[in-house]
Every structure is written in C-alpha cells, then in structure tokens.
Design a protein around this nucleic acid. Structure first.
Length: 328
DNA sequence: AAAAGCTACAACCGCAATTCG
DNA sequence: ACGAATTGCGGTTGTAGCTTT
C-alpha cells in the first residue's frame, strides 16, 4: 500500500537509519523544512515528505524531552484527558518536550491499563459498571480501591446554554442554591443529595464526604473535577477548546438516569447540618445574572469527582482549558 | 537454548482542515 | 469559487527487545 503521497514514488519506508536522521537534521537545521514535500529531495533522502515531517516532529526535534514520563506528567495526562478526551495534540501542549505520538503511546501502553486496574473507564474516567457494585459498598467495607472523598454533580437543563469555562469554580460554588431539597439515596442512606430546580437549572449535589465539600482548607476554587456528559465515546464535546457541551436529549438522559439511580421518590426530604451549611451559601443576584448569561448558549453536565486514580486537585484560574493549573 | 508471548514505541494510514494557485 | 497540494491529527500497525515457558 503506502501513503497516497508515497504511492507515486518509490520511497523507503520503515525505521530510519542514523545516516538518514543525520541528513534530515542537517538539512532542517541549516535550511528549515519549508515545504515538507521538497525536503526529501533537498536533503538527499529516499523518503516521502510526510515521513520526514513525522520523523522530525516525533524524534529529531532538538527540544524533545526523551525518557519515561514522570508521575507529574502522568497526572497531567490523566487530568487533561478527562477533559479533552483523545485529543493527543492538545494534551501534548501541556507537556513541554513531549509529542502527541508519545503521549498517545504512553496512554495506550500504560495509563489506560492503570485506570482499568483501578476500576475506571479510560474513556470516560467514570467507574466501570463492573466496579459500581464495589463502590456502592464503600461505606463500611474494606476495599482495595480508595474511597472517593467527594462527589458532586451539577447539571443544567437549559437549552442553548453556553458553558463559559472562564467561570471560576468559586463562582460556580457561590451559585449553589440556597434552598435545595435534600434526598437520601436508598443505597447510601447517610449520604445526602441536594437538589434544586429552577426554570433554568437542575442542581444535584451528592456528597460522599460532607467535610470535603465545605472544608475551607479545600478552597472554593480548588475542586477535583471530572466532566463527563454521556453522548460520545470520550464523554463530552468541545467547542473551541474551552466550551464543553452535550445536547439536550442526552442531558435529559443523565438527569433521568441519575434520578432513577440515586433518588428514592418516596423518601422524604430531610433537613440536616450539611443542608444548613449549603444554605448559607447565598446567590448574589448579579452573579446569577452572569451565570445565566454564561450558561445560556449551551447545555452541560458536570460531575466533580475525586477519583481513586487522581492524586491531586485541579483548579481553574480565570482562563480556559489551556491555562488549567494543578495542585500536587 | 529456543520458541512463544508480551510490551513499548516508532512509523504508517487515512481523513479532515487549511493553504495555495 | 474551485481543485490540488500540503499540513495536522488520531487510529492503527509493525517490529525490536524483553520476559516467560
């Protein structure tokens, strides 16, 4: 077979020899690559331009960092993948000296397996169905998997809402409704689920570790997060790299699913200390207007999860995806 | 020691987006 | 405006080297 660009020419394929590398490096460092299709001829290589480009980008570039990935790099990959999915080129931008190919290979050969071993779906970063049973029994059981310290989910049912990723989490948290109703899921009677419905939003917040939620040491803008609307394999859609979306029907499905799964209609709302605490968070009218404005043009579904595989918190600055920062 | 199996990663393939004439 | 060429990207394959049997 061969490349379309190579099929016209008889060019060498397969692994590059040191001599070929030398020729390519010499040519590009002295002349630059210009048009890649002209590089093989000018460099005296029996390769196609596409192959030269790939070899340079993935292997010969002087600014490449060689060697195995550090634990910090691995965390960054996992966290960014949670948000961007298999957008290797975008993920690689967060790792200076690493290429998309390298990140992709590392993911497929190493990270993926680790996540699966931890009971997490590497595509969605959610618990695998086979592990949900285990996690339903977190309370009081001795498990090999660490218990998540908190789980929050926020869902909007607004049509055409736009999730502005510039919105800091402090703003998101400050928008928590002051008067949520409280439910206790059947399978976890100690864990309250706060729910608030308005014409624009349905908030559902489930705490697994009530202290973690309002703990001041955590800070209002340092929130372990996973974002996982359900419609595509990667778990979410992205518009312009800083806007996440899911369509209304799928969002509706999440809502229904969550309610079916977690809420027992026959259970009476119960007021409790956590509820009181949440009620203290008052929504400023101005903020509400801002929030409505920023959510108005797309739908979204959020789930904040501190997963067993996630050892550090991620927090937003006031900037889009490219400027995420991580606490370690 | 040799064959089989496994793993990591380099390289290829094909498609989509962008640029150019 | 259009088609060809080029570039960029994600998925997939091939293979060298290591481990196990």
């Amino acid at each position: 077979m061969g490349h379309r660009c190579c099929s016209k020419q008889k060019v060498k394929r397969g692994l590059w020899s040191p001599e070929e590398d030398e020729k390519l490096v010499k040519h590009i460092t002295t002349h630059g690559h210009g048009s890649w299709s002209s590089v093989p001829k000018l460099a005296g290589l029996d390769r196609c331009g596409k192959s030269c480009r790939l070899r340079w980008i993935n292997y010969l570039r002087p600014d490449l960092k060689r060697g195995s990935f550090s634990a910090q790099e691995e965390r960054i990959i996992i966290d960014v993948h949670r948000i961007l999915g298999n957008r290797w080129a975008q993920i690689a931008k967060h790792l200076p000296g690493r290429t998309d190919n390298e990140v992709k290979n590392f993911w497929n050969s190493c990270v993926k397996k680790k996540l699966i071993a931890q009971g997490l779906d590497p595509n969605t970063h959610n618990l695998l169905p086979s592990h949900k049973t285990i996690n339903n029994h977190y309370n009081g059981c001795n498990l090999s998997h660490p218990k998540p310290t908190s789980v929050f989910s926020l869902n909007s049912q607004m049509e055409d809402a736009c999730m502005d990723m510039n919105t800091p989490f402090s703003t998101l948290l400050s928008l928590l409704p002051s008067d949520p109703s409280t439910h206790f899921p059947h399978d976890s009677p100690n864990i309250p689920i706060y729910e608030h419905q308005s014409p624009h939003f349905v908030w559902t917040i489930q705490e697994q570790n009530p202290n973690a939620f309002m703990d001041s040491s955590m800070g209002t803008n340092t929130v372990p997060i996973s974002i996982s609307p359900p419609t595509n394999p990667s778990g979410f859609g992205i518009l312009e790299d800083n806007c996440l979306w899911s369509n209304p029907s799928s969002l509706q499905r999440i809502e229904v699913g969550r309610h079916d799964e977690m809420l027992q209609p026959e259970q009476q709302a119960v007021k409790n200390p956590q509820h009181e605490k949440a009620s203290e968070v008052q929504m400023e009218n101005a903020d509400l207007l801002n929030m409505d404005a920023s959510f108005r043009t797309s739908n979204f579904g959020f789930e904040f999860v501190e997963s067993p595989g996630m050892s550090c918190g991620m927090h937003y600055n006031t900037s889009p995806v490219d400027e995420f920062a991580w606490d370690c």
